[in-house]
Design a protein around this nucleic acid. Structure first.
Lengths: 255, 255
DNA sequence: ACGGATGTTGCGGGATTCCGCATAAAAATT
DNA sequence: AATTTTTATGCGGAATCCCGCAACATCCGT
């Protein structure tokens, strides 16, 4: 068995290396990569089916690397080992895991023992292992009890990127009013209001900007999520300017 | 000599511990804390004059901890050992270092040797050591060639928090128009425009929101800077609602 | 099929933002 | 001291944003 480690911090990398060797005597080769790009390449060249990776790396973070690895070989087993349980990461991961894939998500703060267990469960027993803390986040976010719809999350990202209502409408094929509607929902869910307390106009908030701030503070958004979104946006903008051969008829009957 | 280590990651903590013992034979005691709060307490109780700390911790990050430590004993020597050279961090640090204090800033990606040298320079030779990469950032940001004035940075934070022009004006004792003026400057420096290319209205940006997005992408802002700002804002809002005994006459002749 | 829940779209208006034009005041330069 | 450069402020208008009201469309369960 071969295991591929993708992690940018050398200390953590060598710790993982030891942990893997200790937990998996059946593992004969351990490969190491220090960012997403190198990781993808190694995964491809060595057809490794067992990967342990960090999420926050540069260039090319874990989510992006995992996506292309899974695209090439969906049966690859990936254990995400991350410092954070930001909703942005959790959502990012669960967005890309293929049907029936075996994967895991454990925090770096977990004990050696837990890590060992996760390694064996995922690579040997084919069983998913997701840290309690992360699991909680998943439920809260995906089960839409307290969390956000995909539509809401989508619009959150759009305003975080600084798009206007109209631009969002174009991009998502909605009317401007619908966009504003969704914004209202978002503001409610984020518990964002213009006025602060009961006072008349003590401190007022710009809702759209405030929503982004709150989302960041609550870790619904983070740097790498923004980066990904920005890249997507740039791509879309490119298509926009190009002659629209393919996507005629994709805009609402609005103006 | 005693050295206090403040670092939340246990791996890095023990690595630092070893590095300190190896670099400083004259050091007889090494204390460890795993967040800003604990670090402040230990620093106070043991009057430690030599500190090595991470910046990104929770609760209470390195900048906050360093500020109170330096407030209590400005001659304390602090080596910041961080993963990132975000402008938000660099600016945060250089904002709080007292006159003539000895400190250092080295990245975790630096070699063992560089770390060893920094430790000896700062703690023994009383000489500041700042990583090349960080130094570059400092110049770019503080020497206002390409960088931002304090005024601009201030307003950037205010809009990132979601405040309206009027609220910012109140808070900073400016007229609303002046706030808007500063916003114009900010937009220019961030290279932010409404329209995208030459097209009529292909994709439009909400400048205020876009500026925040760009600032985040360029790492002028980051999560912990936002958290600090949010705390300051909450404090200010508190004072606002309270009976304004002391600060009458602090608002411009506007309205 | 009928009522309900949810989601989209239009209209309209008040509040805010964006910003050009213009005038002082303050600061920096010469 | 005189000139230039920055910064603060006001006025006004076009474009946006925020959002209540209302008309439909779709989907679901009884």
């Amino acid at each position: 068995m071969k295991v591929l480690i993708i992690e940018d911090d050398p200390l953590h990398r060598s710790y993982l290396n030891e942990a893997v060797r200790a937990a998996l005597p059946e593992c004969d080769t351990v490969l190491e990569a220090e960012n997403g790009n190198a990781g993808e390449r190694l995964a491809r060249d060595f057809r490794s089916a067992h990967v342990v990776m960090d999420l926050q790396m540069s260039p090319r973070n874990g989510i992006e690397a995992a996506r292309t690895i899974w695209k090439e070989r969906p049966e690859t087993r990936i254990l995400f080992w991350s410092n954070y349980s930001d909703e942005a990461y959790v959502r990012g991961v669960s967005r890309i895991v293929p049907q029936g894939a075996v994967y895991g998500y454990v925090l770096k703060s977990a004990s050696d023992d837990r890590l060992r267990l996760a390694l064996r469960s995922i690579f040997i027993e084919s069983q998913c292992v997701i840290d309690r803390e992360v699991r909680g986040m998943q439920q809260k976010s995906l089960g839409n009890a307290n969390g956000f719809t995909d539509a809401e999350y989508e619009i959150l990202i759009d305003i975080a990127l600084g798009m206007t209502d109209r631009a969002i409408a174009q991009r998502r094929n909605l009317s401007v009013r619908s966009v504003q509607n969704r914004l209202q929902q978002l503001y409610e869910k984020l518990d964002v209001y213009q006025s602060i307390g009961d006072e008349a106009d003590g401190g007022r908030f710009n809702l759209r900007a405030r929503a982004v701030a709150v989302a960041f503070l609550r870790k619904l958004l983070n740097h790498s999520a923004l980066e990904r979104a920005e890249a997507d946006l740039a791509y879309w903008l490119g298509r926009q300017r190009a002659p629209a051969h393919l996507d005629a008829d994709r805009s609402p009957r609005n103006e």
